Computed example of a mutant assay.
Amino acid sequence: MDALRKLIHQIVENASLITATLSQRRKAGEVAYTKVVIKPVELKKALHYQFAFYYENKVTHENIPAVELEERVMDMFGETFRQGLICTEEADYQVLISKKFKVSILTKSPTKKSTSLTHNRKKQYILEEGQPVPFLVELGIMNDEGKVLARKYDKFKQINRFLEMVQDVTAHLPEDRPLTIVDFGCGKSYLTFALYHYLSIERRRTLNVVGLDLKADVIAHCSALATRLGYSNLRFLVGDIAEYDELSQVDMVVTLHACDTATDAALEKAVRWNASVILSVPCCQHELFAQVDAPVMNPLLSHGILKERFSALATDAIRAKLLDIMGYKTQLLEFIDMEHTPKNILIRAVKGSSGSLPKLWAEYTAFRDFLHAEPYLENACRDLLPAEAGEA
C-alpha cells in the first residue's frame, strides 16, 4: 500500500484532484453504501473535499478539510473498497487492490479538465440534480433519472435554498434526543418533505414531524405520500394554528406563507414551546395596513401600493424585534429571488440573547408608537414581555 499512499500524498500536496470514485466493496453488507465519489469544493474560502456516499436509493454528503483527505482515502482503500478511479490534472489512475492487499496502479492519459472552484462554477445544491431523490420524484419535480423538470426548476431552487437555511441552524437543535418539528400551514408540503428528508435521511436524526393545514383534501394527499415514501414519523393533520395543542414541547417551528396574523399565531406557539429554531415566511400582512398612521410619512402612505409594501416590511420588523425581546437572535433573510415572488422574506430565529433587553424594548416601543400600531404578536405574548408592556 506504500505506492498508493505516495500517490495520494502527492495528489493532496499538489491539490490536483479533479474527481475520484471508490467502488467494489470488499464484503457485501460491510457498509451500507456501494461507492464514494470525491471532489474538491471551496468552503469559507478554503479547500475542502466533498464525499458523496451512494446507497441503494439515496446519496448523502460529507465535507472534510483538505488535510484529512489522505488518511480518509487510505482508510477506505484499506477497509472498504478494492477499486478506485482517480482523475487529476496530470493523469488518470486506476487503482486495483487484491484480496491480499496487493496494489496495482495503472496510469492513463487525463480524461477530465480542472475547473475553477470560485469562478463560473455550477451551483452546489444540497439536493443535487442528476441524483434521484424519492420525494422529489413523487412530487413531480424530478424524473426517475434525477433530472429536474424545466417547469419545476424554480421550486427545486426554492427547496435547496430552504435546506441551506435549515443547514445553518442545525447546530442550535438538541443533539441528545429525537427532534419534534411542527410545520404550520404546510399546504402541499414540498418543504415539509424536504425538511424530513434532509434531517432524517441526510443527517440521520430521529424525528417527530407534524404538518398542519386547514384543507382536508391536501392533508389526505400529503398523508398518502408520506406513507408511500416510508416516512413513518411524518404526520399530517387537519387543524387551525391557534387551536393546535397536541404537543407540550417543540424544537423547531416552521410556518411558510401562513396568511396575515396566522403567522403571528404560529410565532406565539413557537415562543411558548421555547422552540430552539423558528423559520417563518409571512404572507398577506394586512394587520398594519389598517393601523399605521404617521402624518410625516403621508408622501409614502398616501399611495396604496407603497403603503401595502411598507406595512408588510414594518410587520416583519415588529415580529423580528419582538422575537429578540423574547429571547431569540433573529435574522430577516431573502428566501428566493424577487423575480419569483415578492413574498420572499424569511424570519429565522434561534434561541439566544440579542442584547440589552431595556434597549431592545425601547427601540421596539418607539417604532410601534410612531406607527400607532397595535401588533397581534405583542398582545398575544404580553405576559412574556417586559412589565412595561402591560401598560402599553
Rank of each mutant, 00 (worst) to 15 (best):
286 H>C: 12
286 H>Y: 13
287 E>W: 01
287 E>D: 11
288 L>Q: 00
289 F>G: 03
290 A>W: 13
292 V>I: 13
292 V>Q: 08
293 D>R: 11
294 A>Q: 07
298 N>I: 05
299 P>C: 07
299 P>F: 04
300 L>N: 08
300 L>C: 14
301 L>N: 07
302 S>C: 13
302 S>R: 14
302 S>D: 13
303 H>D: 11
304 G>E: 12
306 L>F: 14
307 K>F: 06
308 E>P: 06
309 R>D: 08
312 A>D: 10
314 A>K: 01
314 A>P: 00
315 T>M: 03
315 T>D: 04
316 D>E: 14
316 D>R: 04
317 A>W: 09
319 R>A: 01
322 L>V: 06
324 D>E: 15
325 I>C: 04
326 M>S: 03
327 G>P: 02
328 Y>F: 12
328 Y>A: 03
330 T>C: 03
330 T>D: 00
331 Q>P: 06
332 L>N: 06
333 L>F: 04
333 L>D: 02
334 E>F: 10
334 E>L: 14
335 F>N: 00
336 I>E: 15
337 D>C: 11
337 D>H: 14
337 D>N: 15
338 M>S: 12
338 M>H: 13
339 E>A: 15
339 E>G: 11
340 H>A: 11
341 T>K: 07
342 P>T: 02
345 I>K: 10
348 R>Y: 01
350 V>K: 00
353 S>H: 10
358 P>R: 06
358 P>E: 10
359 K>F: 15
359 K>R: 15
361 W>I: 11
361 W>A: 02
363 E>Q: 13
364 Y>D: 05
365 T>Q: 11
366 A>I: 12
367 F>I: 07
367 F>H: 10
368 R>Y: 06
368 R>E: 05
369 D>E: 15
372 H>R: 13
374 E>P: 08
374 E>I: 12
376 Y>W: 11
376 Y>C: 04
376 Y>A: 05
377 L>C: 01
377 L>F: 02
377 L>K: 01
